[in-house]
Design a protein around this nucleic acid. Structure first.
Length: 282
DNA sequence: TCCCAGGCTCTCT
DNA sequence: AGAGAGCATGGG
């Protein structure tokens, strides 16, 4: 099934959106992105100002429903021109980051997958997070056409931590199992969606291995609370270096989007510095 | 060999 | 309540 979304000359960048650390299952081959979203194996690319989604395992899918699904997934209804307008002139670093990474969209991702992925992310680096999640799907997810679905929460709830040894998630295994069991036994996305940020955090923090960072990632990437502000080592550094003594309050209702621009900016700058350093010394 | 990575838990003050 | 060690694993 092929779907076209008119971007209406809006700044939208798949590379920036998939590489900004909010998702871990998209990979790029020759200018096209491939990923698995809620059991759909998809190909995504932009051509002539159209976002093109090609669903490779499209049995029994309804065209209209799929259109709405992907429109929501890529957050195409949110007015990012307005978001950027509101974030403008707060700070030079943010203005610069926003100019460079303004094509980012905050995806609307599945609750369980997001929670689980960010549990895995703790004290970990992005390549390894991707590798663990890939193996998690490979060994515990349903086989699709050429890839695997994210594992079913009820299936994982019935396992024990040692069963996950094969994916090398280390000390996080027990957290993954606890998350799955608590979701199976009552934590529901649809209910949490009615709660305030604070109450969502309070509830999902009862899961072992879920603290302020993981819960704010879930708020931002799954509940689409654009004011949620995940603080990891990069953002902590940025706040110390560029916003000394201030909190995310200075960014207002779209602090989470600001955070995403800053994270990408800081990380790529660091990678650039590293590669420059290496080439000078090789 | 040591340090770091989209942190959190547990223990000790 | 706040500080600090420990945690699995792999890359640099």
């Amino acid at each position: 099934m092929e779907l076209d979304f008119n971007l209406n000359q809006k700044k939208f960048d798949l590379d920036q959106t998939f590489d900004c650390g909010q998702c871990f299952r998209w990979f790029k081959i020759k200018e096209k992105w491939y990923g698995v979203v809620q059991g759909r194996e998809a190909e995504a690319y932009i051509c002539d100002n159209l976002l093109k989604i090609n669903i490779l395992n499209d049995q029994d899918l309804n065209h209209e429903d799929e259109f709405k699904f992907w429109e929501n997934y890529f957050d195409l209804d949110t007015d990012y021109i307005l978001v950027k307008e509101k974030l403008k002139n707060i700070d030079n670093t943010l203005d610069f980051a926003m100019e460079k990474f303004g094509g980012i969209r905050i995806l609307n991702q599945n609750f369980w997958e997001t929670l689980c992925s960010f549990i895995i992310s703790q004290n970990n680096n992005i390549p390894r997070i991707k590798s663990i999640i890939k193996n998690f799907c490979r060994y515990f997810g349903k086989k699709l056409k050429s890839n695997y679905a994210f594992p079913e929460v009820n299936h994982i709830a019935d396992l024990c931590p040692n069963d996950l040894n094969i994916i090398k998630s280390g000390f996080r295994s027990k957290y993954i199992i606890d998350a799955a069991r608590k979701i199976k036994n009552g934590i529901k996305f649809e209910e949490l969606a009615n709660y305030s940020n604070k109450d969502v955090v309070k509830i999902i923090s009862k899961i072992k291995g879920v603290g302020p960072k993981v819960s704010s990632c879930v708020l931002l990437y799954s509940f689409h609370r654009l004011n949620a502000f995940p603080i990891d080592v990069w953002i902590r550094r940025t706040m110390q270096e560029n916003f000394s003594g201030k909190t995310s309050d200075i960014f207002g209702e779209f602090a989470g989007v600001a955070q995403q621009y800053l994270f990408s900016f800081k990380r790529t700058t660091k990678i650039y510095e590293n590669s420059t350093f290496k080439s000078q010394n090789s």
